[in-house]
Simulated assay, not measured.
Amino acid sequence: MDTLLFLMGFICVIIGVFGSFLPVLPGPSVSWVGLLLLYLTNAVPNNYWILGFTLALTIIISVLDYVIPSKGTKKFGGSSYGIWGTNIGLILGLLFIPIPFGFVIGAFLGAFLGEMIYNSQDKKRALKAATGSLLGFLASTFMKFMVCMLFLGTFIYVTWQNAGKLFG
């Protein structure tokens, strides 16, 4: 059972790292579940401080993930159309434009097109709002990625510390 929990936890942490880039996957939350699964094994002693701290960090990051892009868009004069355009453009960019630039180009173009749908007469405002939306998205994505990498590092460290019990 420990091996199954370990493997499921590792898969969750890896999916969480990818989820930090994809708006359809809650990256930090999935990564935290991976840590939880590791601590549910009999081989790893419970550490409620680590689980509590990482859970609090996950909740804070999840809230900020919704706040930062909208604040960036609004600061630059954008609308909810720009935010939706950013998310749709991100997904389409990942599917049709080679990585690593697909999500950046897609997010920017999506935000710009969303703002043009909102108000097609003011291209300058749409460009400014798209820039704000993109900057907010990039800041939010970077923040989620760093947290997921922290969770991955914690997972590896705890696994290393308990390798004899997990794999022995």
Rank of each mutant, 00 (worst) to 15 (best):
P23N: 03
P100D: 04
F112Y: 15
A130W: 04
N87L: 13
I156G: 04
N46L: 15
F167L: 13
M149E: 07
F155I: 11
L38E: 12
K75I: 00
P100E: 04
S70V: 10
G82L: 05
G78Y: 09
G82M: 05
G9F: 05
N119C: 08
C12L: 09
Y118A: 07
T141S: 07
F21P: 00
T73F: 02
L166I: 08
P23M: 04
F167T: 12
S29H: 12
L7W: 14
L113Q: 09
T3D: 06
N47I: 12
V44F: 09
F112R: 06
I61G: 06
L135R: 06
L95W: 15
G19A: 01
C12A: 15
L7Y: 14
S140H: 05
V67G: 04
M8V: 15
A126Q: 00
Y39F: 15
P28W: 09
F151Y: 13
A163E: 09
F142P: 03
K71E: 02
L38N: 11
Y157G: 00
Q121C: 02
L37G: 13
G153S: 09
F145H: 11
T131F: 03
L55F: 10
A111C: 04
K124S: 04
R125K: 11
G114D: 08
F53N: 04
V147F: 14
C148N: 15
L95R: 06
I50W: 08
A43W: 06
V158C: 01
K75F: 08
Y157W: 07
L109Q: 05
V30P: 12
C148P: 03
W49V: 08
C148K: 07
F151R: 01
T154D: 03
Q161W: 06
G89E: 12
N42Q: 13
S29N: 10
I61L: 05
F18H: 00
